[in-house]
Amino acid sequence: MNPFTFNTSASIRFGAGLLAQLGEIVKEEIGSRVLLVTDPGMMATGIVDQALASLEGAGVSVTLYKDVAADPPESIVTACADAAIESRAQGVVGLGGGSSLDVAKLAALLATQNQSLADAYGVGNAKAPRLPLILVPTTAGTGSEVTPISIVTTGASEKMGVVSPVLLPDIALLDPELTLGLPPHITAATGIDAMVHAIEAYASASANNNPISRNLATEALRLMGASLETAVKNGRDLPARSDMLLGSMLAGQAFANSPVAAVHALAYPIGGHFHVPHGLSNALVLPYVLRFNAEVAPTPYAEIAPFAFPQLAKIENEKERAEAFCEEMAALSKRCGLQQSLREMDIPREFLPKLAKDAMNQTRLLVNNPRELTESDVLNIYEAAW
């Protein structure tokens, strides 16, 4: 067995209704002054009010930063960190989807004024200390509550990452009741995103691909493969929502240590240029990247196929089972109501070469793909997805 490293959040707390305990947890783990990071969409749900009531009921003074945007730019990250500094926050709580959690991570890092955001970009460049950090996801998708990664939009469309175990929170607090109100389309897109995390982690060519990540990935696919359609069609189904939230977290733990690859590399330029939500960007290119990879590397896809889709276990031929897995993932996306082509997102065909060129800049991700891609290969995939 090759040497590997596995890191995850120090404490994971899971349970329906757990948000009500946020105040006591913060009082015990952080102190009496906290920065709460969220976004305008969350403000409209009532969930932030529940969090504030719990915090204030425990005697915690709260500074609210509510301006997180999707694909957050550097300006939002620095403004949030400034809010933590000015309020003399003793810690940070991130509440919301992946963008809010990512901004909370960086605010906790930058609020110590130990380094700049520019110095933190890249792998292993973020340095301790950071403020104590609690992350509370409200979507079953990114797994950000257990990943050492924060993605920032730099300039007009480029994305850069801060990747370091320093960003792993002290507590990941998962309350499936917070996901009950998610609309079907967001449920579907974030759910496919989480499944992509598990798929790419299992198949990753990273030297740190390891038995822990692979086992987490298969359990994530088992949970989500059985529950995603139910969660999309009946958003109040708490067992399905619970399975999706737990599956998303397990997939996050998997890819945090066995990194994702070409699906994400091709999705990022779509989101950067056309502001397509990240989960949907992944879903749009997923079947075509899987088919490309499975032509020469079918084994990992054949191995995980029965976990997501138990009926595929009866297919004995490895290549045929891998191909069937690719088709089932495409069919699942369609059944969940997601758009199926780049043209449906008003992406001009003549823009595809620019997408391909930008995707090739995602070297941090492409190196993990089980099959090497040239720019011509990437363009062909975009053409197929168009």
Rank of each mutant, 00 (worst) to 15 (best):
D175E: 05
T138W: 12
A89Y: 04
A156W: 14
G181L: 04
G97L: 07
A118V: 14
L173Y: 01
S150G: 07
A107S: 10
T153I: 03
A107E: 05
T147L: 03
L117G: 11
I134C: 08
G122W: 11
A89S: 14
A104S: 12
S144L: 09
L133H: 02
A111L: 09
V92C: 03
A172N: 02
N114K: 10
A140W: 13
L133N: 05
L135C: 07
A126F: 11
Q90L: 15
A104Q: 02
L117H: 08
G143E: 09
V136M: 09
S150I: 10
V103G: 05
A156R: 15
K159R: 01
V162A: 05
G96T: 10
T142R: 05
V162F: 11
G141K: 05
P132C: 08
L174C: 03
P148N: 07
P176G: 05
L174M: 07
M160A: 12
T147Q: 13
A89N: 04
L174S: 00
N125L: 10
L109N: 00
V92W: 06
D170T: 09
Q115D: 14
A120R: 03
A156C: 13
G97A: 12
G94W: 00
P169L: 03
P165H: 07
I151R: 01
T138A: 14
L135Q: 06
E177L: 11
Q90S: 13
T138D: 12
G96A: 12
V93M: 01
L173P: 03
A128L: 15
L117A: 07
L101M: 14
T112Q: 12
P137F: 13
L180T: 02
I134W: 05
V92E: 02
L180N: 00
D102K: 01
K105E: 05
E177S: 00
V152W: 03
K159Q: 07
D102R: 04
G96H: 04
